[in-house]
């Protein structure tokens, strides 16, 4: 099992229950669309998987490794999170340095780091951005650079938080093509149901931090009652 979440509860210091008794099993290579109204707990769930938010109850296993403080380094080498805002993720002088940031933190040699960075850039078709500064890129280019920064870590599990935010239609189409060609296990949180239908066969609906429904994306996204109960609209 690539991701095994069992009865996960995440409670913020102000006692807000961000994730409530959430359970999910994801096999290798599977792709899930994660849907929920604002504040449903999608981002909190992803941050908990990455070990950024502390787990209040329950357990998360990534590639059979339990998410706990002493194993965070292993977890973060296996799972990659692409943030909603690429500006949060690109903080170095050049795109190359941003992409190399992760591999260098894991102590890889400069030769191996460069190889990985070039592979990631090549996979996304943005080799020409290598020496550019993130400050001078378009939102679409920044999104691809942020994905490359995570791909260079060679993760097995990719978590996307609102990947279509800030993208124009062309960049969105490009992203759909890329995601469909990626062999990784993916969980993609988005409000863009049409996009999710294109990139994942299965969907998860979250409501108030809990898993509200799970099933085929084409069925769930057209179920008016279910979607409205979840505070969403059908396609």
């Amino acid at each position: 099992m690539m991701l095994d979440i069992s009865q996960l509860t995440v409670i913020y210091p102000d006692k807000t229950k961000a994730v409530d008794n959430f359970s999910l099993q994801v096999k290798e290579g599977e792709s899930f669309g994660l849907v929920g109204a604002n504040g449903a707990g999608k981002t909190s769930l992803m941050l908990a998987v990455m070990g950024i938010l502390p787990i209040s109850e329950g357990c998360i296993k990534v590639d059979n490794i339990i998410v706990e403080k002493k194993r965070l380094s292993d977890i973060r080498s296996r799972a990659g999170l692409i943030f909603q805002n690429p500006d949060d993720q690109l903080f170095m002088a050049t795109i190359y340095d941003d992409i190399a940031f992760g591999p260098r933190n894991y102590g890889l040699s400069e030769q191996e780091t460069r190889k990985r960075a070039e592979e990631a850039l090549c996979e996304l078709g943005i080799t020409h951005l290598m020496e550019r500064s993130a400050l001078k890129l378009s939102e679409g280019e920044k999104r691809l650079a942020a994905i490359a920064a995570v791909l260079s870590m060679k993760p097995s599990l990719l978590l996307f938080d609102e990947p279509t935010a800030f993208l124009d239609l062309k960049a969105r189409r490009n992203l759909i093509r890329l995601l469909n060609n990626m062999p990784y296990t993916k969980i993609i949180a988005s409000h863009d149901l049409l996009f999710l239908k294109e990139v994942s066969k299965q969907a998860l609906l979250m409501k108030n931090g809990a898993l509200f429904a799970q099933g085929a994306a084409k069925d769930l996204f057209h179920d008016k009652k279910l979607m409205e109960d979840c505070g969403l609209e059908v396609i």
């Binding site: 950024i52 965070l72 999170l81 943030f83 949060d88 993720q89 903080f91 170095m92 340095d97 995570v150």
Partner: peptide, 14 residues
């Protein structure tokens, strides 16, 4: 958080 997600620890610098 984004730095930590890519393996940043206080003792490493990327």
């Amino acid at each position: 958080s984004a730095m930590k997600c890519r393996g940043y620890m206080i003792k490493t610098t990327g």
